[in-house]
Design a protein around this nucleic acid. Structure first.
Lengths: 182, 182
DNA sequence: ACCGTAACTGTCCGATCGGTCAGGACTGAC
DNA sequence: GTCAGTCCTGACCGATCGGACAGTTACGGT
């Protein structure tokens, strides 16, 4: 029995992060976390005020890191601003990969579980976007376009009128893919 | 009372799509849908074998449209392939905007509900990525980079080694933002 | 040795949710 | 009129989940 407060807390957070990243937040019960961490459910609620507080504590470091990045680039402008922001943001997402994954797991599980097998189609789309290339740069760029268009289309309409949004999404996507217009 | 089978079914699907897009799939109960559609929960389960079947029927048109697109570009290659795929994919996401939104609502709700207010930070990040510009093209491109990096970092590691992934994400993101390296 | 306190647990609870079921209401065919 | 079949419902059920609480165990200071 981990008789140190911080030891058990750490164990709980570790188990929660792993389980959340596999089954999603809503798909993981307190009992699941407790079993994995090797303690009782009541012990969870002794260390954390509630299930959401566990998630909060899990995501706080990422939030703080993002805030720090924004502070750092606050004084910059022009090319330096964009470059520093992009590099910082990429590094940040890679560092907090598991945290981001847990946010997506609910979607992934939802898309797969149905009879409609979306994953197979996503592979085909990825292939086409990469121009059937298997090279890593092409694959990465294809993934980025897939995610970019997907998220942007879910954006509030107020960002841009539909026609502008459409045109810019297409142009930006082609730029991402390093596609020189014919 | 809609005494026609198809009328009630349509009403249920419409209510479900709207509620799912606001509260997410898991955040919407059968009772919620029934109340909104103006029928009993039991009536839902008369028309649909289960909650998941409602989601399936809601997402099937989008799935089919994607499959059709992939079929259409199956014979193409090179520049034509990429262009057709991008345009088709963008049009498709815009057409099924609400369906996509429902997939993201679980994430959005999770990110907002906490004390950690991520949305405010996301605004700041968007601003920086857009180089503080308020022009629609810059804003759209910034949104795309935000989504692209976010999703790609959650990707399976097998797509590319971390260092390659990092370098390509940065380069692709800067291309997306139409940023000419200094 | 004693005691206060932190760490931990078993047990119970209310709420909610997805789903079942027997039966009522309506409609069209004959 | 009646009968079959579709449409719809109220009531109920089992399971699960997040959370509350009283009580127990272990430990550190004195």
């Amino acid at each position: 029995m981990a008789r140190s407060a911080s030891a058990m807390r750490g164990q709980i957070l570790e188990s929660a992060l792993r389980l959340f990243a596999v089954h999603g937040f809503r798909g993981t019960s307190l009992q699941d976390i407790a079993s994995d961490a090797g303690c009782s459910k009541a012990s969870l609620l002794y260390h954390f005020a509630g299930k959401e507080k566990i998630l909060t504590e899990l995501l706080t470091p990422a939030r703080d890191a993002l805030a720090t990045l924004l502070d750092r680039v606050a004084g910059l402008e022009g090319g330096r601003l964009v470059e520093e922001t992009v590099v910082g943001y990429v590094d940040l997402t890679l560092r907090f990969r598991r945290e981001i994954r847990l946010l997506f797991e609910d979607i992934a599980e939802m898309s797969c579980h149905q009879d409609l097998n979306v994953m197979e189609l996503a592979d085909g789309l990825l292939d086409a976007l990469a121009g059937r290339s298997q090279r890593a740069p092409s694959r990465v760029a294809a993934w980025m376009v897939l995610g970019a268009v997907f998220i942007t289309s879910a954006t509030d309409d107020e960002v841009a009128p539909d026609e502008v949004l459409r045109a810019e999404m297409i142009r930006s996507a082609l730029r991402t893919l390093d596609h020189t217009p014919s």
